[in-house]
Amino acid sequence: MNTMNMMDKALNTTTTKIAARNVNVYYGDSHAIKDVNVEIDANTVTAFIGPSGCGKSTFLRWINRMNDTIDICRVTGDILLDGEDIYDKRVDPVQLRAQAGLVFQKPNPFPKSIYDNVSYGPRIHGLARNKAEMNEIVEKSLRRAAIWDEVKDRLDAPGTGLSGGQQQRLCIARAIATEPEVLLMDEPCSALDPIATAQVEELIDELRASFSVVIVTHSMQQAARVSQKTAFFHLGNLVEFGPTGQIFTNPEDPRTESYITGRIG
């Protein structure tokens, strides 16, 4: 708690996009996430790091309410997006997900054309009034995802035919086409080779200008490279949260130190 208060003071100049208050998650009897408090700022890349099974991916999916369908799953506490509780009864998860896009670990383009992949979100949310607007959205999204030059000549080709890194950038384009406010990325580079990873990381940094980005990653180097703030999860606890530089150079909690120096996890 002490840490939190200190940070609040340091950061209350920026806007808070997502605020989690005392979030607990249970899968049946097991307590997956324990009393997590976190503030995610707008136009910032926030990295969640920690060993496997520490609850960081689970937490990410809760922000997008992707775990709603699992019956035995329960959540307590509040997750606020722009000050509104996303677990309020009145909130439709469909509408929420339009504002918090999710990019998955493994690239999962639909077996459709590249164009249809990107236009899928805007179409279901009714963001384009006509074909020309749609074309514009598709082009803009592909450009922002830094893949436009590679695919502009073959928008009708199936998205599944692209290389792994291209597929993942296509999925990012697909997610940002709906103009979300938050972009949630669940280990977006774990299935990619180093070159593709570099491209995606570069992209994430550019996306910070328009979105608030949350990225879950296994790789501490990646967190250090792309994020401004880092949260370290361990066994369902949020151990430490602060500016990335501080976490990596001067961690307060001994567990964080052991993890980043490679002694646990």
């Binding site: 806007t15 722009d82 000050g83 509104e84 996303i86 309020d88 009145r90 909130v91 509408q95 504002q99």
Partner: peptide, 15 residues
Amino acid sequence: SPTQPAAPENSLLTL
């Protein structure tokens, strides 16, 4: 401190 309530047409609480 979080942001001012979002514009009504953008609120998650109203469908």
